[in-house]
């Protein structure tokens, strides 16, 4: 912030020597006139971007609900770590929820059961004589060695990545969305997008990773991606949502569109 005793701006020029006063006057005389339609155009683009942003957020929870949910999760985690009983309850809850969401991942219930070794308990045939003392080889005061746990590895789950139903159709969509004025002006470029391909193969939550300096190309790429149709990714044969990165190319010379899917995807 400024100090209260700073010199008023209107007096600044007066503090300068004559030659710098002339330069100050000259620079102050530069009138920057923007293109009259620039402001409204930009406002329209911003509104469009805002709508896309809002749509991608979908039915976002209100801030207070998110805060409450985060606090509840944090509380459960703390309780889960601190109290063994609570920890078991939380793990049980998580497993129940996860099993409902991904029944095939966990497999049938009986497979998850741990097979305990059978223990035979037999009554002694006759009471042992009181004088007989059985001495075991192990020292009773020596601490028993901890049991060695055998961790079994999780079974490999067959997965597939999402695929476009028709690459040709996708290219036609990109070409159709290529803004005519940019195409005519020979302006092309690439836009890297990231989006979620749902278990139904639909595109949601588009975001820009590396956009073009031409905003219209960014919006065109997002519009095109919204229309892509995918064969969804699968885990164990069950369709799941997946995060996908795709680079959409607008070729200025041909007016065609193309794209290159990124290999980095993550399922959910």
């Amino acid at each position: 912030m400024t100090k209260p005793n700073e010199p008023p701006d209107k007096d600044f020029r007066a503090t300068l020597p004559a030659d710098l006063q002339a330069l100050d006057r000259e620079l102050s005389g530069i009138r920057i006139e923007e293109r009259p339609s620039f402001g409204p155009e930009l406002e329209g683009e911003l509104a469009e971007a805002w709508r896309a942003h809002q749509a991608s957020r979908g039915e976002a929870r209100p801030r207070w609900r998110r805060t409450l949910l985060a606090a509840a999760v944090a509380g459960l985690m703390i309780a889960g770590v601190a109290v063994p009983g609570a920890r078991a309850a939380v793990l049980g809850l998580v497993r129940t929820v996860a099993e409902e969401a991904f029944p095939n991942f966990f497999g049938p219930e009986e497979q998850a059961e741990v097979q305990l070794p059978e223990i035979e308990v037999t009554e002694p045939a006759s009471p042992e004589p009181e004088t007989e003392v059985v001495v075991s080889a192990a020292d009773p005061f020596e601490e028993p060695e901890p049991p060695v746990h055998q961790f079994s590895t999780l079974p490999e789950v067959p997965t597939t990545l999402p695929e476009l139903l028709s690459r040709r159709e996708a290219e036609q969509i990109i070409a159709a969305e290529y803004p005519a004025e940019l195409k005519e002006a020979g302006v092309g470029g690439s836009v890297e997008l990231q989006f979620w391909v749902t278990s139904m193969g639909m595109v949601e939550n588009i975001s820009f990773q590396n956009g073009s300096s031409h905003l219209q190309l960014n919006f065109a790429a997002a519009r095109a991606a919204q229309k892509f149709q995918f064969k969804p990714a699968t885990v164990n044969g069950v369709p799941v949502g997946t995060l996908v990165k795709v680079t959409v190319h607008f070729h200025a010379m041909t007016g065609q569109g193309g794209f290159a899917p990124d290999t980095s995807t993550s399922g959910g």
Partner: peptide, 28 residues
């Protein structure tokens, strides 16, 4: 104005005047 420049650059009004003076001299 100098006051607004000071706010934007997080410096004092006097510092703005000094810097402007020097920048104009170097420009010349």
């Amino acid at each position: 104005g100098n006051r607004e420049i000071a706010e934007a650059l997080k410096i004092s009004g006097n510092a703005v005047a000094v810097r402007l003076h020097r920048a104009l001299a170097r420009l010349k």
